[in-house]
């Protein structure tokens, strides 16, 4: 089926793009795990139609492709949450750095006196 081929191509391309970004140092390994997991799951579900249909029917979803959307949605939610956690950490580190710069400036001034 055309949609299946398209899904396979998209997930493979996504996977290769992520690997290439890591290889060129544009994406940190620590932030790539969620993305790799997402592309792997989408790849698995697109080559193995039976799995997608099986899980969908078991969950009571009678139109399997819509289950694929649900999975994609969960992954996006996970990735966005991950970003918020990272952002909070970076905020704290940034604050600490700014405070430290202020304190060091003051120390330098006092030493120059």
């Amino acid at each position: 089926m055309t949609i299946q081929i398209l899904a396979i191509i998209v997930s493979v391309v996504l996977f290769l793009v992520i690997i290439d970004l890591i290889r060129r140092g544009r994406l940190k390994e620590r932030y790539s795990i969620v993305w790799l997991a997402a592309s792997a799951v989408i790849f698995l579900l697109s080559i193995w139609r039976g799995l997608l249909e099986g899980i969908s029917l078991w969950l009571g979803v009678f139109y399997p492709p819509s289950f694929l959307f649900l999975i994609a949605f969960f992954f996006l939610l996970l990735i966005v949450l991950h970003f918020s956690v990272v952002l909070s950490r970076i905020y704290n580190e940034n604050k600490r750095l700014a405070q430290e710069i202020g304190l060091l400036r003051t120390e330098v001034k006092e030493l120059k006196k």
């Binding site: 700014a98 405070q99 202020g102 304190l103 006092e110």
Partner: peptide, 20 residues
């Protein structure tokens, strides 16, 4: 003695700089 912060950090972070 003046601690000049490099940009506006907000009251909490500024106060903490004082405590540090």
């Amino acid at each position: 003695v003046v601690i000049d912060l490099p940009y506006n950090l907000g009251i909490g972070a500024a106060m903490q700089a004082g405590y540090r």
